[in-house]
């Protein structure tokens, strides 16, 4: 554990909590891609199956359980409790275009051809693209509420801090997880355009992030 990894995990947690509280307090999931949230729930589910097979630390177990609970609670708010506010028309990204290649790639490029490893690899690849339905929705509607933008900012910070974590671990331990690093770089690149918009529009601007 190093400071980059810890702050990355905390940013990830803050992002998930921001989104959950935004929906809970406003009783609305307007502007939120339910598809991205289902993909994230699927990411956590397929990655954290090792909860049943290997114990790493209390921190590791607690964080995994919290991420899972929050992910499923958020999906529950969007598709059940506040489903009337769900904008399915704008959430029109075709997730099969992500799921099929990601599933195929996880069978081809993994560390070991075992069910748990393939599912872990699937979760890593899927996480790198799971935000695309949300970014697509923002592009389609042309704007995002600032709170949604804060959510995306923390999610992007989490990725960027994990890159720093991997550089640090490579430097200090010689640790190098190729699948996670390559996917993590791809994932972070998706946020770069958003980071630019966030700093030029949300921080200077009027509460909403409009796209050009």
């Amino acid at each position: 554990m190093n400071i980059f990894r810890l702050s990355g995990d905390v940013c990830h947690l803050i992002a998930i909590i921001i989104l959950f509280l935004k929906i809970w307090r406003s009783k609305s999931c307007a502007g939120i891609s339910g598809k991205s949230q289902v993909l994230f729930a699927l990411v956590f589910t397929t990655r954290y199956l090792d909860l049943f097979t290997s114990y790493i630390s209390a921190y590791n177990t607690v964080m995994k359980v919290v991420y899972l609970l929050l992910a499923y609670s958020t999906v529950g708010l969007i598709f059940f409790r506040f489903r009337n506010s769900y904008d399915s028309e704008s959430d029109s990204f075709r997730v099969e275009f992500l799921l099929v290649p990601v599933a195929g790639l996880s069978f081809l490029e993994n560390y070991a051809f075992t069910p748990l490893e393939i599912l872990w690899t699937f979760s890593i690849y899927l996480e790198s693209v799971a935000i695309l339905p949300q970014l697509f929705m923002i592009t389609k509607t042309g704007e995002a509420e600032s709170i949604t933008a804060h959510y995306l900012l923390f999610l992007g910070l989490y990725r960027a801090l994990y890159l720093a974590n991997w550089l640090w671990r490579f430097h200090t331990e010689g640790f190098y997880d190729q699948i996670a690093v390559v996917s993590g770089v791809v994932q972070t690149i998706f946020y770069c355009d958003f980071f630019y918009l966030y700093f030029t529009r949300v921080l200077r601007g009027s509460g909403k992030m409009s796209l050009p």
Binding site: H12, R47, D50, S54, N60, Y67, Y111, Y162, D177, A180
Partner: peptide
Amino acid sequence: GTLIEVHDEL
């Protein structure tokens, strides 16, 4: 071979 024995990251 398997490079990563245990996935300790979240």
